[in-house]
């Protein structure tokens, strides 16, 4: 603006004429509803508050952070019309590689006895990059060969898990440096997750890259004709999702104080479920990070609520599955009515 005195009158309008409720309103209400149901059941069954339980809530939020980090990346992939099934395995592989470089001296078995007590940046960078490389491989294969993302990432899911096991022949890795373990302390994982969510929320809404992802997911052919380099953007989004998954691997192992090749089992499905509950369309072109964050919270509230009530974990799974499907059916019903 050349002259700050001239203020365009219609810029700071309080409520735009076509103001609508934020798209997240309905799932926030669902989240609150579920939480209140558990609150009520908590008083009835156990005579305790479910919500006023800082310890329990922290544990829940920590678990949500791990799934949430992955969900941020997967949401972007799904918006661009793809899918990623490899995240759970990549979490394990990144955890193993980061963990092996985060060990300290003096305690029995170490993976690399020669290199211990490294600065914390080394294992973190190694873990994140491992995820990034897996994502880069996913993206490149999908773009260069034209094989569907479902198949390519299914292959990566199997191979990355195998590599995680082969790395130490199935042995867990532990005895981390204090600095590494500290990553999982307190609310740090939550902060990492929220920061990542904020950054990529901004990327999706305010950058050219973000807008291109929506365009590619909405109509690949039209995106191509509009001059978007579809391949480069797709490789980028798979790589970014890989980096976030690698970061999740670091957080998971730091919090557990150990790296195991069985870690992150079925995390990819929880992340996809979080995205879908949050209103991301598997057909591509539609979705928001904020929705995925709330979706992850819903999943977290459900599992910690059931644990709080002492309900059998098998039954938890049965109900979780039903809730995922119900959420999507309700969403489609709402959209159809809106037309």
């Amino acid at each position: 603006m050349p002259n700050p005195a001239i203020v365009t009158p219609d810029i700071p309008r309080a409520i735009p004429r076509n103001w609508r409720m934020p798209q997240e309103t309905s799932i926030v209400l669902v989240l609150l509803g579920i939480a209140l149901i558990f609150e009520a059941l908590g008083w009835i069954e156990r005579g305790q508050s479910f919500l006023y339980n800082p310890q329990g809530l922290l544990i829940m939020v920590l678990r949500v952070s791990e799934i949430g980090l992955i969900a941020v990346g997967v949401t972007m992939i799904i918006i661009a019309g793809g899918i990623d099934l490899s995240s759970g395995s990549v979490v394990a592989l990144s955890a193993m590689i980061a963990g092996s470089l985060a060990q300290t001296t003096g305690f029995g078995r170490t993976v690399f006895p020669g290199i211990v007590d490294l600065p914390v940046l080394v294992p973190v960078a190694a873990g994140v990059l491992t995820g990034g490389i897996c994502g880069l491989i996913n993206g490149s294969l999908i773009v260069r060969t034209g094989v569907p993302p479902f198949i390519v990432t299914l292959g990566m899911m199997v191979s990355a898990r195998g590599l995680a096991r082969y790395y130490t022949h199935g042995q867990p890795v532990s005895m981390f440096t204090d600095a590494y373990s500290a990553i999982g302390n307190g609310a740090k994982p939550v902060a990492i997750f929220l920061l990542a969510a904020l950054v990529f929320h901004i990327v999706l809404r305010y950058t050219r890259f973000g807008k291109c992802l929506y365009a590619i997911g909405g109509n690949v052919q039209a995106a191509r004709v509009s001059g978007i380099s579809v391949g480069r953007n797709l490789i980028a989004v798979y790589t970014i999702a890989g980096l976030l998954t690698g970061l999740a691997g670091v957080v998971v192992s730091a919090r557990a104080q150990t790296s195991q090749s069985g870690m992150g089992m079925s995390y990819e499905l929880d992340a996809i479920a979080a995205a879908v509950i949050g209103g991301t369309s598997l057909a591509g072109g539609v979705g928001r990070i904020t929705g995925a964050v709330i979706g992850a919270l819903i999943l977290g509230v459900i599992s910690s609520g059931f644990t709080f009530l002492g309900i059998d974990s098998y039954i938890q799974e049965i109900v979780k599955g039903m809730i995922i499907v119900t959420a999507v059916i309700a969403d489609q019903y709402r959209k159809r009515r809106a037309r």
Binding site: A215, N219, A223
Partner: peptide
């Protein structure tokens, strides 16, 4: 099939 992003807004379609 080759032009519109049907789920996106008028503005997003125009500026891409």
């Amino acid at each position: 099939s080759d032009g519109l992003f049907l789920q996106l807004s008028v503005g997003e379609n125009m500026q891409i």
